[in-house]
């Protein structure tokens, strides 16, 4: 064996999991915002939570190729679980977070069997259907969920008994940032592992994945369950930091919005969800300041253009631009974590 080939191969694989400069920039910027943008903590908190939610969708769409139009089912279940738990049992946020994660993971596991078969359209409709059913349940169980009025009177105890939630959203943002970062670290490990690699083979070609000995169904069930847990925790964060849960958390437009954000930010590199959430909420903020309530027009337009140009080509252009910025020749299309 040629040792040179071995060295190249080892380096290539090691490069895949090394932290890139932009990744440090991203998380340091998010941290710096705690001190630098004190008046924006409420919106930053929302962006962070939405970004985490979109990242959970990236795990199934970007890595495993499962398109979902009902991912808010898990977000909503997590939010309601955390809210109801806080009202009826205890206001401890971490316990609520864990419980919400488990509840959504459970739902994810059960419904994963529905998305195993079928093509894109069937999956889109089934996931949409699950979210609709769940939304209908939340709407009807008024005694538990508050129905259309929403869940009132959620009070959350200080985190670890020390850090109280303030009206400026500072604690909330730091809390969401830390939780999101920890979950991101786990997800990052997961997508560069052999498990993560095998998900990408399933996304690219399930027939061959099975022909090299990959238990396709099990892998899909596993990642769908994990993604559901992530979405549930994101929902719980929203319930805890806003101390309110309404039917909005599970509505169709939330599933659609999160899909849009992820697509705008780019799939298959974990940061797409956060970037998309930032762009989406930022645009919403800017555009609605000059055309209030019509801002969806522009989001729609962006989406139409994005699809017409081609999502892959768009991502490639951005990656090339970034490489050029750093003064390096633009190499092959490669993204930050893993590969597309």
């Amino acid at each position: 064996m040629n040792p040179e080939h071995r060295r190249i191969a080892a380096k290539y694989l090691a490069d895949k999991w090394r932290w890139k400069p932009l990744e440090y920039v991203f998380w340091l910027a998010a941290l710096a915002a705690v001190w630098l943008l004190p008046s924006h903590h409420l919106i930053l908190n929302e962006i962070m939570i939405t970004g985490l939610f979109a990242m959970s969708l990236d795990l199934i769409l970007g890595y495993a190729g499962i398109a979902s139009l009902g991912h808010a089912a898990f977000f909503g279940l997590g939010a309601y679980t955390a809210g109801i738990f806080a009202i009826r049992v205890t206001g401890d946020p971490l316990l609520g977070l864990a419980l919400a994660g488990f509840a959504s993971a459970g739902l994810g596991f059960v419904t994963s069997f529905l998305v195993l078969r079928g093509v894109d359209l069937a999956r889109l409709m089934v996931t949409l259907g699950v979210a609709l059913v769940l939304g209908e349940i939340a709407n009807q169980l008024t005694w538990l969920t508050g129905g259309a009025d929403g869940l009132q009177g959620v009070t959350i105890a200080p985190i670890l008994g020390k850090f109280e939630f303030d009206i400026f959203g500072r604690t909330a943002y730091v809390y969401s940032l830390i939780v999101s970062f920890l979950l991101f670290l786990i997800a990052r490990r997961l997508v560069i592992s052999p498990f993560g690699l095998s998900l990408r083979t399933i996304r690219d070609n399930p027939l061959r994945a099975s022909a090299i000995g990959t238990p396709v169904d099990r892998r899909l069930i596993a990642i769908y369950t994990v993604a559901a847990a992530y979405a549930g925790i994101a929902g719980a964060l929203l319930a805890q930091t806003t101390q309110f849960v309404s039917l909005d958390v599970i509505a169709l437009h939330r599933s659609a919005d999160v899909l849009l954000m992820l697509v705008i930010g780019g799939t298959g590199y974990l940061y797409g969800g956060f970037v998309g959430a930032l762009i989406f909420k930022g645009l919403q903020d800017v555009i609605s300041s000059w055309t209030p309530q019509y801002w969806t027009f522009w989001i729609g337009l962006i989406l139409v253009i994005l699809v017409l140009i081609g999502r892959d080509r768009m991502n490639l252009a951005v990656a090339t631009g970034l490489a050029r910025l750093r003064g390096k020749p633009a190499p092959r299309p490669r993204t930050i974590v893993g590969d597309r």
Partner: peptide, 13 residues
């Protein structure tokens, strides 16, 4: 190792 989700792929010599 296919189900191994914690170690990076290609970590072992």
């Amino acid at each position: 190792h296919g189900g191994d989700w914690w170690r990076p792929a290609g970590g072992s010599p």
